[in-house]
Design a protein around this nucleic acid. Structure first.
Length: 481
RNA sequence: GGCGGUAUCGUCUAGGGGACUAGGACACAGCCCUCUCAAGGCUGGAACACGGGUUCGAAUCCCGUUACCGCUACCA
C-alpha cells in the first residue's frame, strides 16, 4: 500500500471544536498507523469570517492534544490562483460553462421557486449561451460565473465507513465553481488543493457526504485520481442536536482550562465513533495507533457525554506517571498560591506523595487544589459543619485531642504504622472506637470532615505542623468551653 | 419539498444468521471494604424503533414505515 497522505482542513472561523478535534485525531491515527503523512490545511477563503485568532486556537488545540502535523501548514487562501486556473481549465475543456446571469437574478429565481414549494435547479439550456453571444458579452466585459456541467449517469464511491454511497447525477445541480468576481467556491478549492497536496484519503465529517459526488466529478473532469473517502459521524450534544455553545464547553481549549488531561480527551474522543472491537476503554496514544482500524469506525452520530469524559479523566489521572502529573499540576498549585513550582520541585518525594493522595480523589486536575490546601500553610480553618458534626462536645473532644497530641508527640518515628498503633491503643484504653479519635483529629488537621486517610494526612502535613494544629484545636475548644 | 445518511440499555458501545436468557463501560441504586471521602470489588434495574419478508433459524440479510441528522448558496 502506498503511504497514505491525509489532511485535517478546518476553517478558522471559531475555536477547535471537539468534533473537529476528533476528525483530526482519526486522520492522525490513520497516518501514524499506516506510516503516512498527516497534513494541516487552513481553509481561510471566507475572508469575512476567518480570523487569525481562530487559526491560532486551532494550532494551540492540536498542540495541546499532541496531534502534530507533517510538512508546512497549507493556507487555502494562498492558492486561489491555482483554483482559478483549474476552474478555467474545466471551462476550456468543455466540462464547465459560463453563466452570465447576475447573482441577484439567480437568487430571485430560486426564491420564487421555493415560494412555490418547488426545488430550484438552474436551467442549463437557458444558461448556456451560443458562441457568438458569449463572444459579444465577453467583449462588453460582462462578468460571469463558471458552472460545472454535471454529466449524466450517477456518481458512487466506496466510503470507508458507509460502504457504497451513490448519487444520481440528475439530483446534482450544475454547481458554481468560480464566482463572477473570480473567486473559487469551496468545492473547487478543496479539490484543487487535495490534488495539489496529493491527498490519498479524505476523512471528514459526514456533513460533507453530499459534497462528495460533486468533488468526485471535479477530480474526474480535472483528470486527477480520485482519492478514497471516509465520512465519520457527527458529535451531538445531550439533546441529540448538533453540538453548539448551548451545550456548554465545545472547544477543546475549554476542556484544557477546566482541568482535563489531553490524553483523556483523546481517549474519549477516539471512543466516540470508533471502537477497538473489544471492551478495552482506557488507552494511550500508542495503543490507539496500534489498535486503530477503519473497520472499527461507526456510521452513527454520537452524543458527547461529559460524565464519561470526567470518568475517563479520572482514570488517566490515576494512571499517569506521578512525575508527569507533577509537571501538569505544579503550575496550578502556584497559581492557587499554595507553593511555587520551584518549591514543589525542591521536595519531589513529598510533593508526589501528596499527589498520590489527591489523584484518586479527583477527576479533574483543578479539583486537586481545594483538596491540597490541607498540606500547605500553618493554620487551619474549621468548617462549621465539621465542628458541628465531629466536635459536638468541646470538653470531651479537647481531652481526646490532647491525649492524641501527647501520644503522637512521644513517637520516635513519624510514620503511619506507628501512629496507628499508638492511637488504636489509646482508643482501646479509653474504651472507644478508633473513629472517635480519627474523626475529631481529622477536623483538627484539615478543618474538614473529609480528607485522605488520617495517617497519610499526619505524615504529609508533617510532625511539627500536625502537633501544632492539634494543639491549636485543643486551645480553640477549651476557649470555646 | 428533493436528495443523502443513521437506527442495540438514558449515554458510549460489543454483536457481522445459530455461541444472545443480547456482553462491557458511563450514569443511577444497593452491598462490601473502611477513620471520613474517594478509589476498588460485588449485585441490580435498563436496549435490538416498527411492520413485512428471506431462512430450519435474524439484533445480524432484503424491502417498507417511522424518527432523527445532514445537504439542498455566486457559505465553508
Amino acid at each position: 500500500m502506498k503511504r497514505p497522505r491525509v489532511r485535517f482542513a478546518p476553517s478558522p472561523t471559531g475555536f477547535l471544536h471537539v468534533g473537529g478535534a476528533r476528525t483530526a485525531l482519526f486522520n492522525w491515527l490513520y497516518a501514524k498507523k499506516f506510516d503516512g503523512e498527516f497534513l494541516l490545511r487552513i481553509e481561510d477563503t471566507d475572508r469575512a469570517r476567518s480570523t487569525d485568532e481562530s487559526t491560532r486556537a486551532i494550532f494551540e488545540g492540536l498542540a495541546w492534544l499532541g496531534l502534530t502535523w507533517d510538512e508546512e501548514v497549507v493556507y487555502q487562501g494562498a492558492n486561489v490562483e491555482r483554483h482559478y486556473a483549474d476552474a478555467h481549465r474545466l471551462l476550456a475543456s468543455g466540462a464547465a460553462y459560463r453563466d452570465f446571469t447576475p447573482a441577484a437574478e439567480t437568487e430571485r429565481l430560486r426564491a420564487e421557486a421555493e415560494a412555490r414549494g418547488e426545488a430550484y435547479r438552474v436551467d442549463r439550456a437557458a444558461t448556456m449561451l451560443s458562441e457568438a453571444d458569449i463572444a459579444e458579452r465577453l467583449a462588453r466585459q460582462e462578468p460571469y460565473a463558471i458552472r460545472f456541467k454535471v454529466p449524466d449517469g450517477y456518481t458512487e464511491w466506496h466510503d470507508l465507513v458507509h460502504e457504497r454511497i451513490a448519487f444520481p447525477n440528475k439530483d446534482i445541480e450544475d454547481f458554481i465553481i468560480l464566482r463572477s468576481d473570480g473567486t473559487p467556491v469551496y468545492n473547487m478549492a478543496v479539490v484543487s488543493d487535495d490534488i495539489a497536496m496529493r491527498i490519498t484519503l479524505v476523512m471528514r465529517g459526514d456533513d460533507h457526504i453530499s459534497n462528495t459526488p460533486k468533488q468526485i466529478l471535479l477530480y474526474r473532469a480535472l483528470g486527477a485520481e480520485v482519492p478514497q473517502f471516509g465520512h465519520v459521524p457527527m458529535i451531538h450534544g445531550a439533546d441529540g442536536k448538533k453540538l453548539s455553545k448551548r451545550h456548554g464547553a465545545t472547544a477543546v481549549g475549554d476542556y484544557q482550562h477546566l482541568g482535563f488531561l489531553p490524553q483523556a480527551m483523546l481517549n474519549f474522543l477516539a471512543l466516540l465513533g470508533w471502537s477497538p472491537g473489544d471492551d478495552t476503554e482506557v488507552m494511550l496514544l500508542p495503543e490507539l495507533i496500534e489498535r486503530f482500524s477503519v473497520q472499527g469506525l461507526h456510521a452513527k452520530a454520537a452524543i458527547f457525554d461529559t460524565k464519561k469524559l470526567e470518568w475517563m479523566n479520572g482514570q488517566h489521572l490515576a494512571l499517569m506517571p506521578i512525575a508527569e502529573l507533577g509537571h501538569v499540576v505544579a503550575p496550578l498549585f502556584e497559581k492557587a498560591g499554595l507553593a511555587t513550582v520551584a518549591e514543589l520541585a525542591s521536595r519531589p518525594e513529598w510533593f508526589h506523595g501528596v499527589l498520590e493522595l489527591l489523584r484518586v480523589r479527583a477527576r479533574l486536575t483543578d479539583e486537586m487544589i481545594p483538596l491540597a490546601t490541607t498540606f500547605f500553610g500553618a493554620t487551619v480553618e474549621y468548617e462549621p459543619e465539621a465542628i458541628g458534626k465531629q466536635w459536638r462536645d468541646a470538653a470531651v473532644t479537647a481531652e481526646i485531642l490532647q491525649a492524641t497530641h501527647d501520644r503522637l508527640a512521644t513517637l520516635e518515628q513519624w510514620e503511619p504504622a506507628a501512629m496507628e498503633d499508638a492511637l488504636r491503643k489509646l482508643a482501646e484504653e479509653k474504651g472507644i472506637s478508633g473513629g472517635k479519635i480519627f474523626q475529631p483529629l481529622r477536623v483538627a488537621l484539615t478543618g474538614k470532615t473529609v480528607s485522605p486517610g488520617i495517617f497519610d494526612v499526619l505524615l504529609y502535613v508533617g510532625r511539627d505542623h500536625s502537633l501544632a494544629r492539634i494543639g491549636a484545636a485543643v486551645a480553640f475548644l477549651s476557649k470555646d468551653a
